[in-house]
C-alpha cells in the first residue's frame, strides 16, 4: 500500500522569504500522524500545498497517490479539511454551512451528521456571524467527520474548544481511525497528540527536524529518573549517559539516555534502593529539546 502523504524536498517561497526549505513528510495509510512545530514553522503552508491551494516551488508531493496541484478536484473528493482559522458566511446558519461543505465534497452521512451535532453540542440554527471561534470550529469538524473520506487534514482543529469538546474530538478521531482512515493532525496540544498519534513529525523553519513513531523518538532521547536509597548514592556522575544530575546524599534526580538506562539501573542496585520512579520523556520535553527555552514563548502551550 502506498503512503497517504509523501512529501520530499518541498520548497515554497513567498517573495523573498522562504516558508518551506526542503521539507519531508511521510504519512502511512491508516496512520494518525501528529504535525508539530512552533508558529511560523510552515505547518499551514505545507497543508495548503497538500491541498493544491498553493503551488510547490520544488520537491515531490504525492497525496493519495496523485498530484495535489494537478488532480486537486479528484483528490478532494477523498479528503476532508478543517482549516486552522475557520471562516464561514455570516448570513448562513451553521447547519447550512455543514450541509454545503459536505455536499461540495461529494455528500455526507445524515445519521453521522446528527450524531456529531449532538456530540459537539452545536446549535445548527444559529447564523454563522453569531458563532464564537470554538463554534465555528465545531461546524468545520462536523462537516469534515460526517463525510465518509479516506484522509482527514486537520490544522489545529481544537485550538478554540473547551476540554469536554476536546474529549469529543479525540473520540471522533479514534472512530475514523478505527475504520481505517488516515489523519494528519497539526496541533500545539501535546497531550492530544500523545493520546491520538502513532507517529509525529516535528518541523522548524521549514525543514523536518524529527520524524518517526513516538516510541522510536522516545528511545532516542532521555528518561527522567528519581531515586531514593538507604545509603548515600555515589558514582552516578561518572556513568556514561547521565545528565543534569542533582544528588543529595541518599536521593538523586537525573536524566539518562534511554539506551544507557540498563547500565544505570545495575549501578543503582548496589545502594539498597527504596523508591524509584522513572518516566519516559513527554512529547513536550521532546519538543522543547528541539526548540530550547527561546521557542517556548512563541510556541508553548
Amino acid at each position: 500500500m502506498t503512503d497517504a502523504i509523501a512529501v520530499s524536498g518541498l520548497v515554497k517561497s513567498f517573495g523573498t522569504s522562504r516558508a518551506l526549505n526542503g521539507l519531508n513528510l511521510t504519512v502511512g495509510t491508516g496512520e494518525v500522524h501528529g504535525f508539530l512545530g512552533p508558529n511560523g514553522a510552515g505547518k499551514t503552508t505545507t497543508i495548503r500545498v497538500l491541498l493544491g491551494l498553493l503551488r510547490a516551488d520544488a520537491g515531490q508531493v504525492r497525496l493519495l497517490g496523485g498530484d495535489p496541484w494537478r488532480d486537486a478536484v479528484r483528490l478532494h473528493k477523498r479528503l476532508a479539511y478543517v482549516p486552522g482559522d475557520v471562516s464561514l458566511w455570516p448570513n448562513l446558519t451553521g447547519g447550512e454551512a455543514i450541509d454545503l461543505f459536505g455536499d461540495l465534497r461529494g455528500g455526507l452521512d445524515r445519521t453521522r451528521r446528527a450524531e456529531l451535532v449532538e456530540r459537539f453540542q452545536l446549535d445548527p440554527s444559529k447564523r454563522c456571524r453569531t458563532y464564537s471561534k470554538g463554534n465555528r470550529q465545531k461546524v468545520a469538524l462536523v462537516a469534515a467527520f460526517a463525510s465518509d473520506v479516506e484522509l482527514f487534514i486537520l490544522d489545529e482543529p481544537t485550538s478554540g474548544l473547551d476540554p469536554l469538546m476536546e474529549a469529543a474530538f479525540q473520540q471522533t478521531v479514534r472512530e475514523v481511525s478505527a475504520r481505517g482512515a488516515t489523519v494528519l493532525l497539526s496541533s500545539h496540544i501535546f497531550s492530544e497528540v500523545e493520546a491520538l498519534c502513532s507517529a509525529v513529525s516535528i518541523i522548524r523553519d521549514g525543514v523536518t527536524v524529527e520524524s518517526g513513531t513516538l516510541a522510536r523518538l522516545r528511545h532516542l532521547t532521555r528518561t527522567s529518573v528519581t531515586v531514593e536509597a538507604a545509603e548515600p548514592i555515589t558514582g552516578l556522575d561518572a556513568l556514561p549517559g547521565v545528565h543534569d544530575l542533582v544528588a543529595d546524599g541518599t536521593r538523586a534526580r537525573f536524566d539518562v539516555d534511554s539506551a544507557r538506562l540498563p547500565g544505570v539501573l545495575r549501578h543503582l542496585a548496589g545502594f539498597e534502593v527504596q523508591a524509584l520512579t522513572s518516566h519516559p520523556p513527554t512529547l513536550e520535553e521532546l519538543f522543547m529539546r528541539h526548540y530550547g527555552e527561546a521557542a517556548t514563548a512563541g510556541a508553548g502551550r
Binding site: 495548503r48 491541498l51 478536484v73 478532494h76 471562516s87 461543505f101 461529494g106
Partner: peptide, 14 residues
C-alpha cells in the same frame, strides 16, 4: 482573503 474560499476550494469544487 481570509474568507471561506480556502475551505470551499479544498472540497471537490474546482
Amino acid at each position: 482573503a481570509g474568507g471561506p474560499a480556502e475551505a470551499v476550494l479544498a472540497t471537490a469544487v474546482g
